[in-house]
Design a protein around this nucleic acid. Structure first.
Lengths: 233, 233
DNA sequence: ACTTGGATACTTGTATACTAGTATGCCTCT
DNA sequence: AGAGGCATACTAGTATACAAGTATCCAAGT
């Protein structure tokens, strides 16, 4: 028997210019690259010290994710935030996460509980230290944790893919915002209901939590109008 | 005033080798290209009469969609159907569509009703004519229609992206299967509840409908074992 | 003063050449 | 005969060269 081609698969040889993707995505998310800004392939290529080929592949993927707009013989631009896409993202995320947190509340085990508590503590620390970037990541981590506890870890991949547009709004609001304390409280409420195994309340709290964005979207679309797509006349 | 750069945007100049993507996707879906089969970039390129560059971009996207597996310096292969991915797809699809059909039942207008009835009639025709490929498309069209009626047309894009793996199973079952009559009946039930504006029953029927795949997955994973990933030992 | 025509610079799309890593088959050595 | 090492062929990754379309600017004509 031929050893079944070894399931070790440390095939991890050359993880491509995947870093480029993360870098650009982060820069767009954080507004370093502003909507409407032109980002030619050649510029990005020489800036990163690579050729156009890998840059192109990264840009294609970013276009699929809605971060850039590629116009065939014209140019590549940072995409504006489309309000319609934000609302769609919110709808999908709410639908999926409200269902998964129910499962999480029912499937909780003790080690998971510890992770949740640790995450909350870390959020509190970030809040007091004023580190909004860290909080941004911990927020994601908590939600990912719920999905994992629910026994559907792969679903988080989908949610992450969908909430791209939401993340841009979220980052803007964290920057210009005074509401992190509220978020930490809501997270604490979520964790509390999950720890108590109360699926019903957990779902309701999640729905309310995810809908807090609505309050800020309108404000942000005026405060940072240059980030948003100008609605059709 | 500069005419606002004209919103006509017939920018539709060169829709790339997008056809290639559709062609490969269809061939994998229908089993023309079988799981495990090697599909080198060069082969695909010369077969399509183009260069490797556009082929590569198509393959990258297919890899993102889970249709092919790219191993860096080794080769590109048609991906097997991963049962875990199928179950995840089902979960997501059920979650999203159960919610949207509720909205559809509440938002229905008369023109939409006509479209639904027409779709059902077309399905019946395909069934009697034994055209499984046409039925496959009409099935999709009906579900897309529900999502559109719900007022969230963009959500269908997400569902379509997620259900790739499910589609492969669905196609297999349509080929080897005797159950289209059941599906048409279920579709009729769905449409009936939506037409009646009964959100509760519509959702329940949708859940039951989407879960019919479970019945066939196990059978298919034995009948067509070569299409599925061999579970870890 | 305004429009219109065309030359030019710049963009992405595509093709080709080169690099590097992997698998395979053959040969040699034990 | 079997096991191990080595040369070769093939793969995707990357870089570069070429093609095709677009926007811009300037000049000429009305």
């Amino acid at each position: 028997m031929p050893l079944a081609t070894a399931e070790l698969r440390l095939h991890r040889r050359a993880p491509i210019g995947r870093e480029l993707h993360g870098m650009l995505r982060r820069q767009i998310l954080r507004g370093v690259l502003r909507p409407g800004e032109s980002i030619p392939e050649t510029t990005l290529a020489e800036r990163a010290g690579v050729s156009r080929t890998p840059v192109r592949e990264v840009l294609r993927r970013l276009a699929d994710e809605g971060f850039v707009t590629i116009i065939p013989q014209v140019g590549t631009y940072v995409a504006p935030i489309r309000l319609a896409a934000v609302y769609d993202s919110q709808f999908i995320r709410e639908t999926l996460e409200c269902r998964t947190i129910r499962l999480a509340a029912e499937n909780l085990t003790e080690p998971d509980a510890a992770v949740l508590r640790a995450n909350l503590a870390a959020q509190q620390a970030s809040l007091e230290a004023g580190e909004s970037d860290a909080f941004f990541d911990q927020d994601d981590a908590l939600h990912a944790c719920f999905v994992r506890i629910a026994g559907r870890p792969a679903i988080w991949q989908v949610i992450q893919g969908v909430k791209s547009q939401l993340d841009r709004v979220r980052y803007l609001s964290l920057q210009s915002g005074d509401w992190p304390p509220v978020l930490v409280e809501e997270h604490a409420t979520l964790v509390g209901h999950v720890l108590a195994g109360d699926a019903e309340r957990a779902e309701a709290a999640m729905r309310a939590h995810l809908r807090t964005v609505f309050a800020t979207i309108e404000r942000l679309s005026r405060t940072n109008a240059d980030f948003f797509e100008t609605p059709a006349p």
